[in-house]
């Protein structure tokens, strides 16, 4: 069983514009936001939360490079060293003929590697159960959550009231 070690106070907003305003207010008041949950990606939110640009594409490039080298060097080794055979009068090292498979493996490695990385760093995967603050967050509510160790319950309550949250609640996760 998972341990409940955090007490979270959260407020739900009805619209992403209210959410953005509230996050700005929280930043101005120096309230440390635990997390923000939305039903779809809200544009303009990342800079407000100070989220750095994702480096997932760099990982993708590296995986792709590995795929490229695996395919190209692999075929080179097979057809020049391990088992050279002449096909259709072409040289052993037929670079143009290696390109399609090299390309495919580059793409395959990059996308599979990147997708796995995505799930792992997000802590998502088969059989994972993450705590859900409210059932409507994946529907139509936009949620700001505070950890009560960082922001006291009272402060949070008055913040939510001031910024027009439609529902405020506390949950242990």
């Amino acid at each position: 069983m998972r341990k409940f070690n955090k007490e979270i106070v959260f407020g739900l907003y009805d619209d992403e514009t209210d959410l953005l305003k509230a996050v700005k207010t929280a930043n101005a008041d120096h309230l440390d936001i635990y997390n923000v949950y939305t039903p779809f990606p809200v544009h303009g939110l990342d800079p407000l939360l100070g989220l750095e640009e994702s480096r997932l594409h760099i990982a993708g490039f590296i995986y792709g490079l590995i795929g490229f080298l695996t395919a190209f060097l692999g075929m080179t080794w097979v057809f020049t060293k391990d088992w050279p055979i002449i096909f259709g009068g072409k040289p052993y090292w037929s670079v143009p003929a290696f390109i399609p498979i090299t390309f495919e493996l580059t793409v395959l490695f990059a996308s599979v590697g990147m997708t796995i990385t995505f799930y792992v760093i997000n802590g998502l995967g088969f059989g994972v159960t993450n705590p859900i603050l409210h059932d409507r967050i994946t529907d139509d509510k936009f949620c700001i959550a505070f950890d009560t160790h960082e922001v006291s319950e009272g402060t949070a309550q008055s913040f939510f009231e001031a910024t027009g949250a439609s529902l405020v609640d506390i949950k242990n996760i």
């Binding site: 939110l45 996308s111 990147m114 995505f118 998502l124």
Partner: peptide, 30 residues
């Protein structure tokens, strides 16, 4: 997979979609 809708997850999700779209484009041609 235990999706929560956290802001950071959405950000990475968008990054993943964009890069996958970027490499799926030449892939579909290939």
């Amino acid at each position: 997979f235990g999706w929560t809708g956290a802001a950071k997850h959405w950000q990475r999700w968008e990054a993943l979609s964009l890069v996958l779209a970027g490499i799926a484009t030449p892939l579909v041609l290939s």
